[in-house]
């Protein structure tokens, strides 16, 4: 038999040429056939679903009107500059709020992990904050800050934009604090014991041993929250500043056509894609790292 023969060839002789056995070749051929079959089935089913959807939608009685109101190329081109300018505001606000919320979240998480009676007020405050602002609806926080604070008529009150940004930062900071805390607590106590036994202080242990590992571990959920923040930044338009959605609303009011909203939506998606791609990549990398750690 051939199978037997290849076994003999590959036997205990020092590096001879490798020939896969009959069984191995058969397994590979089988797998190739299976892959091809799956590919064909997937292609056909995708095509069927796609064509059906297109036929149903374009064949519907109201399609012409919907196309006119939502997918009007002319209106889209007209609206694009204004909407894009609004999006620039979203982008700047996003970067500012992301930095702010990450900072607030990390500091709050650290405050919650402090032990010892001296830190009780700080710990209590941090706990109260995460409880309160994870529960409070963002819109209400936004309204309170944007309309309430200027109502105090204090001198030096920041602009509505800054106040809205603060509302986003404190709301998201509360969520991120919990993500950071979960990361910190997921680091095994033996890591802390090893660091302290080397003479590192609590602060040095946090800075050099616990936090780097914790942040690496929670970066997928953190980035996910950034994607969510990117969308919620648009809520600031409720307070007045003209962001992408507000710009689309103004355009719509002028043309009685909803296409500007679609333009804004597409721009938001385009803006999110890089961030989502980074999130996926980081998640994948983290998963690989974890499995490497597990295999150890």
């Amino acid at each position: 038999m051939t199978a037997h023969k290849t076994l003999e060839v590959g036997g205990l002789e020092p590096p001879t040429e490798y020939h896969p056995s009959v069984w191995q070749r058969e397994r590979e051929a089988y797998r190739r056939r299976q892959t091809f079959r799956s590919f064909v089935i997937a292609t056909i089913s995708t095509a069927v679903v796609g064509v059906t959807l297109v036929l149903v939608i374009t064949g519907s009685p109201g399609w012409e009107r919907v196309k006119q109101t939502f997918f009007n190329a002319e209106v889209a081109l007209d609206a694009l500059p204004a909407v894009a300018e609004g999006l620039w505001l979203n982008l700047r606000l996003l970067v500012g709020c992301a930095i702010g919320a990450l900072t607030v979240g990390l500091l709050t998480a650290l405050a919650r992990t402090l032990r010892g009676p001296v830190f009780f007020p700080l710990r209590a405050l941090a706990t109260l904050y995460t409880y309160g602002f994870r529960g409070a609806p963002l819109i209400i926080v936004l309204y309170l800050l944007v309309f309430g604070v200027p109502g105090l008529r204090l001198s030096g009150t920041p602009s509505v934009l800054v106040l809205g940004g603060i509302a986003l930062v404190i709301t998201y900071g509360a969520y991120l604090a919990e993500v950071f805390r979960a990361g910190i607590e997921s680091i095994h106590p033996s890591q802390v014991a090893a660091a302290r036994s080397l003479g590192l202080t609590y602060r040095q242990t946090m800075r050099h041993v616990v936090l780097p590992q914790a942040i690496r571990r929670v970066s997928p959920p953190l980035l996910n929250d950034m994607v969510a923040l990117q969308k919620d930044v648009g809520l600031i338009s409720l307070a007045g500043p003209i962001d992408a959605i507000r710009a689309a609303q103004i355009e719509t009011a002028q043309s009685y056509n909803f296409t500007p909203y679609v333009v804004a939506g597409v721009l938001f998606i385009l803006l999110a894609i890089p961030l989502i791609a980074v999130t996926d990549w980081v998640t994948l990398r983290a998963a690989r790292r974890q499995s490497a750690e597990g295999a150890r």
């Binding site: 033996s190 090893a194 080397l198 003479g199 050099h208």
Partner: peptide
């Protein structure tokens, strides 16, 4: 002190593990 489970810092290279305490402490 040396531990049963080694407790090396997984995010640092061997060299960084060793030089952490001399540098920081």
């Amino acid at each position: 002190m040396v531990f049963q489970a080694f407790n090396l810092f997984p995010h640092m290279t061997v060299l960084e593990n060793i030089t952490l305490a001399p540098e920081r402490v």
